[in-house]
């Protein structure tokens, strides 16, 4: 009896709790939305946050519960958008992906140095010292904070300036957030021509600091047939929507600050779109 009572009481308590819970689970059954799970599976699972949500599953539940757009995933692009659209039963729409571009052409031999930096190899660190070792306060610092941020091995530092490899870039914007100078920006995938300079200094100041800087001379604006270039804040800006990648401005630019990337092979272009 000494042993039996406690055993009985505990067992009975457990059984009562169990039965109550089972009944409660039956009565208060809430049908879970299966679509969230399906969406999560359809997403690439990179959890890069490029869509603006905390991760792929977060994005999936935002689509179902808050009506988020289905074409926000930069990694999966249109293929995944179509999958998501299929699950949600809506039109996919045309979402062209984006690539990151680094708006700086100040390679080691182009930009003057104001001092030799020998500290922690990080862009953020070097920026705290007079805005960086280069004479230009707007250029690529070259210590690869963006390289570290990139999960897809799509960005590297060549000759002191970060360079985006379009074969690997999925447009997740991690590098855009990582750059302390804010010189990385996103352009639509078809866009090949961009002004590789972020300097908002006056032309003469830019000239002194860097051979490759945009001096805001406005020659490109005149030569552009599509009205795609404007000079704002002492630098030329190309509107990627109007730009037809004709390359006229590239030839005209006296400092070669405008860069045109080689056309990707047809197969790659098709995959990119």
């Amino acid at each position: 009896m000494v042993y039996l009572t406690p055993i009985l009481i505990v067992c009975v308590t457990g059984i009562v709790a169990g039965v109550l819970l089972t009944i409660a689970a039956k009565i208060m059954f809430v049908p879970a939305d299966e679509r969230v799970e399906q969406l999560t599976e359809a997403l690439p699972g990179a959890n890069c946050g490029g869509c603006g949500f905390a991760g792929c599953s977060d994005y999936a539940s935002a689509i179902v519960n808050d009506g988020a757009d289905i074409n926000l995933c930069p990694v999966g692009g249109p293929a995944v958008s179509a999958l998501l659209a299929g699950i949600m039963g809506v039109e996919a729409g045309s979402a062209e992906g984006e690539y990151a571009v680094v708006l700086c052409g100040g390679y080691d031999n182009k930009t003057n140095k104001i001092f030799e930096y020998d500290g922690i190899p990080s862009c953020k660190a070097v920026k705290t010292l007079y805005g960086g070792a280069g004479a230009c306060g707007h250029g690529c610092l070259g210590y690869g904070d963006c390289v570290e941020a990139c999960q897809f091995d799509a960005i590297g530092v060549v000759n002191g300036v970060a360079w985006v490899d379009r074969n690997n870039c999925l447009g997740c914007k991690a590098c855009v957030k990582a750059c302390p100078n804010g010189i990385i920006t996103m352009v639509p995938r078809h866009n090949l021509t961009y002004v590789a300079c972020s300097s908002t200094d006056k032309g003469a100041v830019t000239r002194k600091a860097c051979e490759a800087g945009c001096i805001a001379c406005g020659k490109c604006v005149k030569v552009c047939k599509f009205d795609a270039i404007k000079v704002e804040n002492n630098k030329a800006v190309i509107d990627p929507v109007k730009c037809k990648n004709c390359g006229m401005c590239v030839k005209e630019c006296p400092t070669h600050a405008i860069v045109k990337l080689p056309k990707p092979p047809k197969a790659a272009a098709a995959a990119a779109n």
């Binding site: 505990v10 308590t13 709790a17 169990g18």
Partner: peptide
């Protein structure tokens, strides 16, 4: 034992 059981349930 009983408290843990009850609280969990």
């Amino acid at each position: 034992v009983v408290f843990i059981l009850v609280i969990a349930a």
